Computed example of a mutant assay.
Amino acid sequence: MEMEKLSLVVPCYNEEQSIPLFFAAVEKIRTALTNTTIEYIFVNDGSRDHTLTVLREMAKDYPDSIRYLSFSRNFGKEAALYAGLEHATGDYVAVMDVDLQDPPELLPQMLHLIRDESYDCVGTRRINRTGEPPIRSFLAKEFYRVMNRISDVKFVDGARDYRLMTRQMVDAVLSMTEVNRFSKGIFSWVGFDTKYLEFENKERVAGKSSWSVWSLFKYSLDAIVDFSDIPLALASFVGLASFIIAVFFMIVIVIRTVLFDDPTAGWPSLVTIILAIGGLQLFCLGIVGKYLGKTYLETKKRPIYILKETDKKQKK
C-alpha cells in the first residue's frame, strides 16, 4: 500500500509543559499507524508562557515531521483549528487537544474505520465527565439538550473536537469562512458519514484549562446564535404575548371602571407594569442585537487569524 500522510492539528495556549508529553505519547503509537507518515501542526494561539520557544526547539529537532504556526495575538481555539486545517497537507487530518484528554491510542482505530469502512469522519465522545466540576458538567449536558431542540444540526452529547477527517471533508470545512466559528456545529453541518468512538474522560497531563464556566457560557451563546434563529422567534413571541396580556388587562380595567366604579389604584401598579414591559423590550432588543452584532462582524471581512511566525518563515 502506498504511504499516506496523517496531519495532526494541535492548538496550543500556554501549553509548554504538555507539548513534549503529547509528542511522546503520539510517537508511542506511531508503529500502529501502518503505511502512514505523521505531520504535526502545532498552532500557538498567542501563548504567554514559553510555548513558542518549545515549538521552535522541537521543529529544529524534528524538521521532517513538526511544523508550527504562531499567531500575532490570541485569536481563540476556533481560529487555531481553522489555521491548522488550512495548513495541513495530509491525506487525512486529525484535530487533537495537546493536554492528552484526547487519547492518541484511538488514532489507529480511527484510521482503520476511514480506510476500510469508508467513513468520511471518525469523531469521539466522552461517556462521562469524571473530574469536572458538577456545575460545568450540568451546563454542558443542558447545552447539548437545548441545541438539539432549537437547531436543525445534530449535536452529539459529549462530543469532542477530536476527530479524524478525510481531505474532502476538511476542504468542506475550510469552505465555511465565517469569522464567528463553532467547530462542533460546522463539523455536523457539512455532513459526511461520521462514526463516533466512546472513551472514558481523562484528566489533563499538565497545566490547567483556560476555559472557565463564564467563558464556556459565552461560547455556548455564540453556538446558539450561529446555528439557530429560535431566539429571534422567541423575542417575537414574548413581544406578542406581552401585547395580548396588556390588552386583556386594559379590558379588565375598563370593565371595572364602567360597571363597578372601581378605578385601578395609583402609581405602584403602573410602575410595576412599566418596568416589566421595559424589561421585556430590553430582553428582546438584546437578542436582536446579538444577531446584528454577529452580522456586523462578518461584514467587516476581517481575517480569522493573523500569522506572525511559522517554522518556515518569520515576519520582521
Score class of each variant (00 low, 15 high):
Gly279Ala: 04
Arg256Val: 02
Leu292Glu: 11
Phe260Arg: 04
Lys294Ile: 03
Leu285His: 05
Trp211Asn: 14
Leu221Phe: 12
Lys290Glu: 10
Gly278Arg: 04
Ala276Trp: 11
Arg256His: 08
Lys208Leu: 08
Gln281Val: 15
Ala233Val: 12
Gly207Tyr: 01
Val205Leu: 02
Leu297Gln: 06
Met250Arg: 02
Ser220Leu: 04
Thr299Gln: 13
Trp211Lys: 11
Leu234Val: 14
Ile277Ala: 11
Ala265Lys: 08
Asp262Asn: 08
Leu282Ala: 14
Val271Met: 12
Ser215Cys: 10
Gly279His: 01
Ala233Gln: 15
Leu270Arg: 08
Ile277Tyr: 07
Tyr296Thr: 08
Trp214Met: 14
Leu297Lys: 06
Lys308Cys: 08
Glu298Phe: 04
Phe260Gln: 05
Leu292Tyr: 12
Asp229Ser: 13
Gly286Cys: 08
Leu285Ile: 09
Leu282His: 06
Leu234Asn: 01
Phe248Lys: 04
Leu221Ser: 07
Phe227Leu: 01
Thr264Ala: 15
Ser215Leu: 05
Gly286Gln: 03
Ala223Lys: 01
Phe243Lys: 08
Tyr296Gln: 10
Lys202Cys: 06
Lys308Gln: 14
Lys218Ile: 07
Leu221Trp: 08
Arg204Val: 11
Phe260Asp: 09
Val205Phe: 02
Ser220Phe: 07
Pro263Met: 02
Phe248Ser: 09
Ala223Ser: 14
Leu282Cys: 14
Ile251Arg: 07
Leu292Trp: 13
Val252Glu: 05
Leu234Glu: 02
Asp226Trp: 05
Ser228Glu: 01
Ala223Arg: 00
Pro231Asp: 04
Ser228Asp: 04
Asp229Ala: 11
Ile224Arg: 00
Thr272Cys: 09
Phe217Ile: 03
Leu221Asp: 04
Ile230Lys: 03
Phe249His: 06
Gly293Glu: 06
Val247Gly: 03
Val213Tyr: 11
Ile255Cys: 05
Ser269Met: 12
Ala246Leu: 10
Val254Cys: 10
Lys208Ala: 12
Glu203Pro: 07
Leu307Gly: 01
Phe217Lys: 04
Lys202His: 11
Leu275Pro: 01
Leu275Val: 10
Asp229Tyr: 07
Ile306Leu: 13
Val247Pro: 03
Ser215Asn: 09
Ser212Ala: 09
Leu259Arg: 06
Gly207Pro: 06
Gly278Ala: 12
Tyr291Met: 02
Phe248Met: 12
Ile244Gly: 01
Lys208Glu: 12
Asp261His: 11
Ala223Ile: 04
Leu285Glu: 09
Phe260Asn: 11
Ile273Tyr: 09
Val252Cys: 09
Leu234Met: 13
Pro268Asn: 03
Ala206Gly: 03
Asp262Gly: 02
Val213Lys: 06
Ala233Arg: 15
Val213Ala: 10
Leu285Asp: 10
Thr310Phe: 03
Phe260Ile: 07
Ala233Trp: 14
Ala241Pro: 06
